[in-house]
């Protein structure tokens, strides 16, 4: 019962904030749904979606991940949103960022890794296509950089 009220409160908040911004906030349940959505689009691997993560990370609770989307100019498309996925985490969809004409599709953030795994980026482009990239991250035990 308590869960219901929490969800309702969250939904009310989402609706409220959606009224003020151009890219409406999503509830986290939708974030997980967006992941399956993008996966269903059978994303192609593109070398212009650059995902940078350390090969070996010594702190699993803060692993720096960078995403750059630089499609070739002749394609004439730009990036609308990027979703980062950690498939072995309890909640795989980690974060989603949306861009505007003023923002370069280039961001860095810190993620938590439940275990060593591949981090996956899914990018939805302006023509509706979805591209993906993966980078493996190993977690070092002890974490002294050895």
């Amino acid at each position: 019962m308590e869960l219901m009220t929490r969800r309702q409160a969250l939904r009310a908040f989402v609706v409220l904030s959606a009224a003020f911004v151009c890219t409406p906030a999503m509830s986290r349940e939708t974030l997980q749904a967006l992941m399956s959505d993008l996966m269903d689009a059978e994303p192609a691997v593109a070398d212009w979606l650059i995902l940078t993560a350390p090969e070996e990370a010594d702190n699993p609770s803060a692993v720096k991940v960078r995403v750059q989307v630089v499609p070739p100019k002749e394609l004439g498309i730009f990036c609308e949103e990027v979703l980062l996925v950690l498939e072995k985490n309890p909640r795989p969809a980690a974060c989603r960022f949306t861009f505007s004409s003023m923002t370069e599709p280039d961001f860095t953030t810190n993620l938590r890794f439940a275990e060593g795994q591949e981090v996956m980026a899914l990018a939805r482009m302006s023509d509706g296509s979805v591209v993906t990239a993966k980078a493996p991250v190993k977690l070092t035990v002890g974490g002294c950089g050895l």
């Binding site: 911004v21 890219t23 906030a25 999503m26 986290r28 974030l31 997980q32 609770s61 803060a62 692993v63 720096k64 960078r66 980062l84 950690l86 985490n89 309890p90 909640r91 795989p92 969809a93 980690a94 974060c95 989603r96 960022f97 949306t98 861009f99 505007s100 923002t103 370069e104 280039d106 961001f107 860095t108 953030t109 810190n110 993620l111 938590r112």
Partner: peptide, 17 residues
Amino acid sequence: FAGDLDTAVSRNPFIEF
């Protein structure tokens, strides 16, 4: 620029853009 974050984002979230 906007982001939706889930539990996999580290504490003291850091965002560079």
